[in-house]
């Protein structure tokens, strides 16, 4: 059987809110080492990879590896019934066709349970190699959200260029043009306000803004976001989910015709 308890249930709520616009359905794979998900959006342009480690949960037990086919809009409907301060326990029997979610209020005076129907989903699994990137940029998640939101109102695609001057986001459209440059900045006493640019070589890539904006639905999960760029490869937009794991979004670059 599978059983996982997370006392900070709001994390699970935020994770599903981060995913549900991008991914309709997917297999959450459970194993003794934790929970993971790999899923593409419907146009197969981007990939989301979620890893939640067993030791990040308050309790975790999984006797047998199994995929749990989840419809994320339905998962979200049930998680919306959990209070923000509730503890959430997930339970499933081996080869079950449903996932039980139990919500406990923080003073344990209210307990509710819901069953989510599971689906059988055929999915391909992609091997994502660990690699060095030409540029890695850490910035406040709220800053990333602001940039992609602002630029989406101006254009459809963004040129992201990382140089020793900083990281520049450029777009253009019917309205005109826009450029936002962030410089390396570690002056704040608060680490989450730092912008850290780790540049091995200059790189410039073009991406569809609507996906980058969609990734910012994960903003509530982490104070910082990390962007990783290498020529001709997908950008990685990564949010650390506390001690629990991380969520990474991969988006293929636009290539000139």
């Amino acid at each position: 059987m599978f059983e996982a308890k997370i006392s900070q249930g709001s994390v699970l709520k935020k994770l599903v809110e981060a995913l549900k616009e991008l991914v309709t359905e997917g297999n959450i794979d459970v194993s003794p080492s934790g929970m993971s998900l790999q899923a593409m959006d419907s146009s197969h342009v981007c990939l989301v990879s979620l890893v939640l480690r067993d030791d990040g949960f308050d309790h975790f037990r999984c006797d047998r590896n199994m995929p749990m086919g989840i419809h994320f809009a339905n998962f979200s409907k049930i998680l919306k019934c959990a209070g923000n301060d509730d503890a959430i326990t997930l339970k499933a029997e081996d080869n079950a066709d449903q996932l039980t979610l139990m919500f406990e209020s923080s003073n344990q005076d209210r307990i509710s349970d819901f069953d989510l129907k599971l689906m059988s989903i055929e999915s391909e699994h992609l091997g994502i190699p660990d690699q060095d990137y030409s540029a890695e940029i850490k910035m406040p998640a709220s800053e990333y959200q602001r940039i992609v939101r602002d630029l989406t109102s101006i254009g459809d695609t963004v040129l992201i260029s990382a140089t020793k001057e900083g990281i520049k986001f450029s777009t253009s459209g019917d309205v005109g043009t826009a450029n936002v440059t962030l410089r390396h900045n570690t002056t704040s006493e608060k680490q989450e306000e730092h912008t850290i640019i780790d540049l091995k070589e200059p790189v410039a890539l073009t991406f569809a803004l609507r996906y980058l904006k969609n990734f910012s639905n994960a903003t509530a999960l982490a104070p910082q976001v990390k962007l990783s760029l290498t020529k001709d490869l997908p950008i990685v937009v990564e949010y650390q989910v506390g001690e629990l794991g991380n969520i990474r979004f991969y988006l293929a670059p636009k290539i000139d015709d």
Partner: peptide, 14 residues
């Protein structure tokens, strides 16, 4: 503008 390739073109199936 520009072409948009499928994300799966960048990674190997396992």
């Amino acid at each position: 503008g520009g072409k948009q390739r499928s994300i799966s073109a960048f990674f190997k199936q396992t």
